[in-house]
Nucleic acid binder design. Structure first.
Lengths: 224, 224
DNA sequence: TATGTATTAAACAAATTGTAACAATTCAGC
DNA sequence: GCTGAATTGTTACAATTTGTTTAATACATA
């Protein structure tokens, strides 16, 4: 399970965050000042830190600097709305994101999820594993249930795009412009054919899973 | 590769920035006045703009306003040290960061990297949460109380409009012209049908909440 | 030239969209 | 409160758009 450390001195705010994140399925630990936060970080392993800027004893940016000395886990800053100037500096120091008070709990959930996803993606950039599929972006090879797919260049590029952005719906214009690098003038035949060929090759490799999903009227994406 | 547009009239400063950024592994393009800068932006796709404030023909803040009309890429302002007052205004217009002259090249690198990272991370913006509803504008998916709605393209577009402008009342002409991109000639049947279908799908997802409100004689809007 | 790859074309299938006819609702004026 | 004209809502179906597949042709590379 993913563990999140919440460093926030206001007890009710801390509790609220903890409760929300627990409902989202994370394990949380609460610290009520910077020194305590750093202590917990040394002791346990965490996947993320929510860090308030205004802390007693040791201010948030000091804590952040301390964290960054020996860790690259995502840190989301919680700050008062009017601290615009500091935002920029914090991102420079190495914060990953920030949320301004008063915050919407739904937004907190979204940000946390998004940052965690990115973090976990970052250390497996070269190997993409999805369901029964394995892509090596260095070797440009793809296997489905152990069977190697012999893909052409265009097929591979399409597939890699889908796998790199698992939720995004790619419009045809989108696909065309990123892969072909030219302006899309409405001729989607090429794309449709390649998609078809790609699907066929996947199917022939004994895959029962459909990897590429059609989103009617919008485009294509990786199937869930 | 990431592309950065440098809009700066002093040739040696421009060149220095270009060189530094190229060494950092970016592709750069140089413009020497505001008009040229805007022209380049229209033609090519950039990931970031470095923008000098004091430019011939068109001042930096005009250029910034122009950029913000159709893009949200990070813009870093380069300004003389004594123009402190403007900083805040620029951040209000939509600048992401600022660097004062004379600048340290190491700092430029750091700021550029930080802003680019944040920009590419900014996908939390793409999540719209409203009451029990969650819309992912990347994945083009909508869930109500955890249930995924299977929307058609038109239905989705309508819904996204409402959610993006939560208080605005959209007249039918308004909706028709933004979504269909054609002149509205008074036939509101299409819209009514789509709204009806959309409401149905929401209702079938067990939602007790009415998300789309009719404003009699005026149009529709997101319900409060 | 031989081979694989990319593109185009065309015929077919599927889903969405628009239309039309009718039902329900709202609101102004009595 | 009624009443009815205006506005909005619903439904089913036809027309249109969009997607799939197969095959043939063009293109590139060795």
């Amino acid at each position: 399970m993913e563990r999140i450390l919440i460093i926030e001195d206001e007890r009710d705010v801390n509790g609220l965050l903890a409760q929300t994140l627990q409902e989202d399925g994370y394990e949380t630990k609460s610290a009520y000042n910077g020194m305590e936060g750093i202590k917990f970080l040394r002791e346990g392993s965490f996947d993320m830190v929510l860090l308030d800027l205004m802390l007693p004893f040791k201010s948030g940016d000091e804590v952040l600097r301390e964290i960054r000395k020996n860790s690259d886990i995502p840190v989301i800053i919680i700050s008062a709305k009017d601290m615009v100037r500091t935002k920029i500096d914090l991102l420079t120091i190495g914060a990953d994101d920030y949320i301004t008070k008063p915050f919407d709990l739904g937004e907190v959930s979204a940000r946390v999820a998004s940052n965690l996803r990115r973090y976990h993606q970052a250390d497996s950039k070269k190997q993409i594993v999805y369901k029964e599929l394995h892509m090596d972006t260095e070797a440009k090879s793809v296997t489905v249930e152990g069977v190697v797919l012999e893909l052409t260049s265009k097929e591979y590029q399409l597939f890699e795009l889908f796998l790199k952005f698992p939720n995004k719906v790619f419009s045809k214009a989108n696909l065309y412009e990123t892969i072909w690098g030219e302006e899309y003038l409405g001729d989607d035949n090429v794309i449709k054919t390649h998609i078809s060929n790609l699907r066929n090759k996947i199917k022939k490799a004994n895959s029962k899973i459909e990897y590429i999903e059609t989103v009617w009227g919008l485009g294509y994406r990786l199937a869930k």
